[in-house]
């Protein structure tokens, strides 16, 4: 097999591969920067909790409206927002911390989602949507994914400064009279939107992977927010491209293949990255001893 056949031919030859690649590109542009903020806020697990909420929302919508693209997207979006709001409210009204209330709602919505899926478990369509069908991304989902990416980039450009300050020094923002609660809401909405976009391509369980892994990888290579965001979009897209090729040539499920490629990059960066990796720490120690 020559290089052309290995790296390009699948995309030249098949429309579904091209669509999948475009979906990956759009997802990477949105999820990359959002994931960076999520990781910097130490809210990775909150993202995980929200993805389970999206699962139960989409499953509920499937029960009510059948395999409707619009209903399932809307269901996932609403369920994600409700869990985000409820967790925030519980954290504000009771002494319980936000991570604990998110974890509680995560388990509740996961159980609800699994319950609904198990009663309709034999339904192949439902399984596809819940666990990802990037190779069957249709026009409607592609439109949704691209719109979410566009909206995300616009919102980040407009609210970037506020989102970063809210993340880095929320006490200062509050003391300066900044709209901390609104920014927090904007941010959680962006997370949920990107999870909904991601679940059409990768499935609700994998969508969070394309958000968290590239962001975690970029922390090992850069130390400035804009750089982190660009790098994590790039890594997400590269993982998408390589993952799609793997799944095509080896006949593997595409969603997990993409996430596993990103996971491989994470492990390599953890060992060899330029900032805080095992290699960097080793070099630092040697320099100190010399």
């Amino acid at each position: 097999m020559d290089l052309y056949a290995a790296l390009l031919q699948p995309f030249v030859e098949f429309g579904f591969m091209r669509r999948a690649l475009v979906a990956c590109l759009a997802l990477s542009l949105g999820s990359g920067p959002v994931g960076v903020l999520l990781v910097l806020r130490r809210m990775s697990l909150v993202g995980d909790a929200l993805s389970h909420a999206v699962l139960s929302g989409a499953a509920t919508a499937f029960m009510i409206a059948g395999l409707s693209f619009v209903a399932m997207s809307l269901g996932g979006f609403i369920a994600g927002l409700v869990v985000a709001m409820l967790s925030g409210a519980v954290a504000r009204m009771t002494p319980q911390r936000e991570d604990a209330s998110f974890a509680a709602f995560c388990v509740i919505s996961l159980a609800l989602g699994v319950l609904i899926v198990s009663t309709h478990g034999s339904n192949i369509d439902l399984m596809h949507v819940l666990f990802g069908t990037i190779l069957a991304v249709d026009d409607a989902s592609l439109l949704l994914i691209v719109s979410v990416a566009t909206l995300t980039l616009i919102m980040l450009a407009v609210f970037g400064r506020g989102l970063i300050v809210e993340c880095f020094d929320p006490g200062f923002l509050r003391a300066s009279g900044g709209p901390g609660a609104i920014l927090h809401f904007v941010f959680l909405t962006l997370v949920v939107l990107n999870l909904v976009a991601g679940f059409h391509a990768l499935g609700t369980l994998m969508a969070i992977g394309l958000m968290i892994l590239p962001a975690a990888v970029s922390r090992f290579w850069a130390h400035e927010v804009a750089m982190l965001a660009a790098l994590s979009s790039l890594i997400a897209f590269a993982s998408g491209y390589v993952g799609l090729l793997f799944s095509y040539h080896a006949n593997l499920a595409s969603g997990p293949a993409i996430i596993l490629v990103a996971g491989g990059v994470y492990i390599a960066s953890f060992a060899f990255g330029s900032h805080g990796s095992l290699r960097a720490q080793f070099l630092m120690r040697r320099r100190l001893e010399a």
């Binding site: 910097l40 970063i164 880095f168 003391a175 300066s176 009279g177 850069a222 400035e224 982190l228």
Partner: peptide, 21 residues
């Protein structure tokens, strides 16, 4: 107004590892 008051909290409240210049 609250914004007329500068307030320096104890250090523990700020994430010093944050990637900002």
């Amino acid at each position: 107004h609250q914004r007329d008051i500068a307030y320096l909290p104890q250090q523990a409240e700020i994430d010093r590892s944050f990637p900002i210049s």
